[in-house]
Nucleic acid binder design. Structure first.
Length: 660
DNA sequence: ACGCGCATAAACACAG
DNA sequence: ACTGTGTTTATGCGCG
């Protein structure tokens, strides 16, 4: 056949080792795959760069968002210690005279600059005096104008409304504005008062920050901002409810009931903003609004020698009055705007990834990896077996993303092979082995035409162990592959042959005659005997990890080898042989990744990503808490990114021999 | 250079 | 004869 000749051709190009056979060589990713196949010499591909930039931008936004929210809602955020990176907040406290616009631009990302502008406008608002009422009315008007936009966002799932927050959340979001609108509003207000201030802001190029022009600049400007481990978008929504109610009450006094939502706020009235100054904070000696001997209330730079003095100052100067309320209100706007912006950036990231890594003929957005938890109920969870060649019905369309909860970077490092330059080895070897990877990103692999970074053997094993009785027929294995991986919905001849080849070749796969024919089981002992590839600290490998992990397109062998290695490492030596494999429930697995995940995924292929334990897989111990822990999942890759030394330590401390 | 693990291709056997 | 299943061999690649 012509397959042979085609294969020969491809082999000469050295690209077939990435798993793309002749049947798929016409795919969109073919060219890039061949080009950067293992010899990219550390060059970061454009795709890598895109993801990196997006991630960094989003992280910056999240970081800032957190800090904004921290400054706003002190009680709930008391446990969030002040980050060593205090750039946005502290910068916001500075007057424009203290720092040049250029310096600001260097320090702050556009979202931060935007928020800074708003904070300074809030400062102006203080001085606005008689203009305040007009401003507030204008604000309300803008809110109404924004309502349609926000409803659209909500419809698109870009804004997550938590039920517990009810009307408050809705109301808050309705008040959120797109950056352009808000800034126009600020400019209007500023123009009334001080054109000089406005000029300074123009100098910062803040007003030109449209809603979709920030991320890349942000990535460039503020890459030094580390991902906050508690960078939870929810913080932004966790403004003390009573405070909000108080604010809304205050606002509604101006709107004369035009906004019904505000009046439906179910929280008791009469609460005070001072409630933010919880007593325990006075005891701890820390306060989100106090740092470096200064009051960090927006626009206030009062020097306070100690906490007591600060508290006194706080209660005296920032008591519940119109000014404080307005400032708080503005701060809310800042947070909300950033939330919106974050949602937009997240959406853009997804669109980019969709564009880059999915077949153009299948323009389905793969939202799932960004919001696996919320997608669970929408997944088809029965024992569906999709006919070969028939793609899994996309579930993404109906799946809303909730960037505020889930954040933009839920995709684990091992699935986002090109998210960042430093990430893969750690997560692969110790944190996200196949079970974790699949549980976490199963929807990604289901929809994206991405070769899974695992060996056939490990995939087969996983499929078998996933089965209720730990046995599958060949055809069921086929179906599992096609069901779980869009990649395997094509090139059937190639990978099926490979599956059969692996089944026969590896001793770990045992064929058992069954009533209804032959089934395949896994001999875990044999599987563990296989020598895992040990490639610790190989500079070449790292290079390849960096340059060649572009969504399964490169160095598939090594991706697979690494994944394989990780799987072996994470499996315990207490595994039983095939004879009892059917009844074994994977008792006590050391880093228990497989067992927990297998149980999760046990409902025949449907994963429970929301519960995936590997979201904290970089930790040694396994937690079994349900994962409404919105945030912990993202930093998996980020943690890996910022803890290279740790990964090395782990690597050397976990010799595979220990498992035998 | 060699061995290893892996992927791929392909030939072959066998059963239904 | 055809198809699916299973086995085996060959080859190439990247790496240690």
């Amino acid at each position: 056949m012509m397959v042979e000749s085609a294969t020969e051709t491809i082999r000469t190009t050295g690209s077939n080792q990435n798993g793309v056979s002749s049947l798929s060589s016409q795919s969109d990713g073919g060219g890039r795959e061949g080009g950067s196949n293992g010899d990219a010499n550390g060059e970061i591909s454009p795709v890598d760069l895109l993801h990196l930039q997006q991630q960094q931008a989003l992280q910056a936004a999240r970081q800032f968002l957190l800090q904004q929210a921290t400054g706003l809602s002190s009680p709930s955020s008391n446990e969030v210690k002040q980050s060593p990176v205090q750039v946005p907040v502290s910068m916001a406290m500075m007057t424009p005279q203290m720092i040049t616009p250029q310096q600001m631009q260097q320090i702050l990302s556009p979202p931060q600059l935007q928020a800074l502008l708003q904070q300074q406008q809030a400062l102006m608002l203080q001085q606005l005096g008689s203009k305040q009422l007009a401003f507030q009315q204008q604000l309300i008007q803008m809110q109404q104008l924004q309502q349609q936009h926000l409803l659209t966002l909500q419809r698109q799932g870009l804004v997550n409304l938590q039920p517990s927050q009810g009307p408050v959340a809705i109301q808050s979001l309705q008040q959120a504005m797109c950056p352009t609108d808000l800034q126009q509003l600020w400019k209007d207000v500023a123009g009334v008062q001080s054109t000089e201030e406005a000029m300074k802001h123009e100098g910062l190029d803040l007003s030109t920050n449209s809603s979709n022009s920030t991320s890349f600049t942000a990535a460039k400007v503020s890459p030094q901002i580390p991902p906050h481990p508690l960078a939870n978008g929810q913080h932004a929504l966790h403004t003390p409810k009573r405070d909000r109610a108080r604010l809304f009450e205050w606002i509604s006094s101006f709107t004369k009931g035009e906004s019904s939502d505000e009046q439906t706020t179910p929280y008791p009235k009469g609460s005070h903003l001072q409630s933010a100054h919880a007593p325990h904070e006075e005891h701890t000696g820390t306060h989100p609004l106090y740092g470096h001997g200064e009051c960090k209330w927006p626009g206030c730079e009062a020097l306070c020698d100690d906490m007591g003095q600060f508290i006194k100052h706080l209660n005296n100067e920032h008591a519940l009055d119109d000014r404080s309320t307005a400032q708080c209100r503005v701060q809310m706007q800042v947070v909300q705007q950033l939330e919106i912006q974050l949602a937009k950036e997240s959406e853009r990231l997804q669109a980019m990834m969709t564009h880059l890594h999915m077949r153009p003929s299948e323009p389905k957005p793969f939202n799932q990896p960004l919001n696996l938890a919320s997608s669970v109920p929408l997944l088809k969870r029965d024992s569906d077996v999709y006919p070969e060649g028939l793609p899994h019905p996309p579930t993404s369309a109906a799946t809303p993303i909730t960037p505020l909860r889930q954040g933009p970077s839920v995709i684990s490092s091992s699935s986002l092979h090109s998210v960042g330059p430093i990430r893969r080895r750690n997560s692969e070897k110790y944190c996200t082995p196949i079970a974790s990877e699949l549980a976490q990103n199963c929807e990604f692999y289901k929809n994206a035409d991405v070769r899974p970074p695992f060996t056939y053997a490990s995939l087969i094993r996983h499929a078998i162990l996933e089965a209720p009785d730990h046995q599958l027929t060949l055809n069921e294995i086929y179906n599992w592959f096609t069901r779980m991986f869009a990649y395997f919905r094509r090139n059937t001849a190639t990978w099926k042959n490979a599956v059969r080849h692996n089944l026969s070749l590896h001793k770990c796969f045992v064929r058992v005659e069954n009533v209804k024919g032959a089934v395949w089981t896994v001999d875990e002992v044999e599987y563990q005997k296989r020598r895992p590839p040990k490639m610790t600290g190989s500079p070449t490998l790292v290079k390849n990890m960096i340059s060649g992990l572009g969504f399964g397109s490169l160095n598939a062998n090594y991706q697979a080898a690494l994944a394989e290695s990780s799987l072996s490492l994470l499996n315990s030596p207490t595994l039983v042989s095939n004879s009892s494999a059917a009844s074994l429930n994977m008792p006590h697995v050391g880093h228990d990744d497989v067992s927990s995940t297998v149980e999760q995924v046990n409902s025949n292929g449907s994963c429970s990503p929301g519960l995936s334990p590997q979201q904290y897989g970089h930790q040694i111990h396994v937690k079994e808490e349900p994962a409404e822990l919105e945030e912990d999942s993202r930093p998996v890759s980020l943690m890996a990114t910022i803890t290279p030394t740790l990964e090395r330590d782990m690597e050397e401390d976990l010799p595979t021999e220990e498992l035998e």
